[in-house]
């Protein structure tokens, strides 16, 4: 099929960007979105143009690198990562707009590539446990309720792709931060640092320049890992408790 790609082109962090349209023939519906971009880039290289820079790594939906806003939606029309989106989701003759994640905390480096270092620093602020846990403990020594284990695991599936920020009209990273707070806060290993974790991570979230949460759930609708909205309420609950105890 023949499609038209309208892509955000920006030379570097300092340059002004703009949308540029390219026509692309011979696109198979079985191609993944990134494979389609590879073909487009080959064409651009052949024509002596600068290929479109985009992030990707595993291409199997688990690393969180490939973030593109497709037709105004983070990761495009399906609830999945961009690499797992296929061209069968589009029609012959479609005009497809591709843009980078747009947020103050995610400065564009080039074209579709943004610096998501803000997420790393939120993790550095408290998204870990510092107790040496040694080898795997005896399974029945510290019982964890089934629903806690399930919730912790589903929160831990967050791949930090940043779609929540790109989708949020406030540019808030609350779903990401909340997923990390929930994942450790529900397990015994996470308890000693539970208060300081939520305090430090929320403080870092705001220092990075992310917006506030308005509980509209646009983030969860675009999250490729289906992190539920209740994680944000859990973060709010944890921070309320931590602040009332007043220790960081």
């Amino acid at each position: 099929m023949r499609i038209f790609i309208r892509a955000w082109r920006q030379k570097n962090a300092e340059a002004e960007g703009k949308m540029v349209t390219y026509a692309l023939d011979g696109v198979s519906e079985h191609m993944s979105f990134l494979e389609m971009l590879d073909v487009l880039n080959e064409q651009l290289t052949f024509e002596g143009e600068d290929p479109i820079a985009f992030d990707s790594d595993c291409r199997e939906g688990i690393c969180g690198m490939c973030g593109i806003v497709i037709n105004g939606l983070a990761h495009g029309p399906e609830v999945t990562t961009t690499c797992q989106l296929h061209m069968r989701s589009f029609k012959d003759g479609d005009h497809i707009d591709i843009e980078p994640w747009r947020a103050k905390a995610f400065p564009v480096i080039k074209d579709l590539v943004v610096d998501r270092g803000a997420f790393d620093r939120i993790i550095q602020a408290g998204g870990y446990i510092s107790a040496p846990t040694g080898s795997a403990p005896e399974a029945n020594a510290a019982p964890v309720a089934k629903h806690d284990a399930d919730d912790a695991f589903s929160a831990a599936t967050c791949i930090a792709c940043g779609a929540c920020v790109a989708a949020c009209p406030n540019g808030s990273a609350m779903l990401f931060t909340a997923a990390k707070v929930t994942h450790l806060g529900l397990l015994p290993q996470g308890q000693p640092e539970r208060d300081s974790r939520v305090i430090n991570m929320v403080a870092q979230h705001d220092a990075e320049g992310f917006g506030g949460c308005t509980n509209i759930g646009e983030c969860t609708a675009s999250c490729p890992k289906g992190i539920p909205l209740s994680t944000i309420a859990r973060l709010n609950r944890d921070l309320l408790g931590a602040l009332s105890r007043g220790e960081a």
């Binding site: 602020a125 808030s172 300081s196 939520v198 305090i199 430090n200 929320v202 403080a203 870092q204 979230h205 705001d206 220092a207 992310f210 917006g211 506030g212 949460c213 973060l235 709010n236 921070l239 931590a242 602040l243 007043g246 220790e247 960081a248």
Partner: peptide
């Protein structure tokens, strides 16, 4: 961090 958390968007 504690002071920043007290002035955060969540508060």
């Amino acid at each position: 961090a504690l002071k920043r958390a007290r002035r955060s968007t969540v508060v």
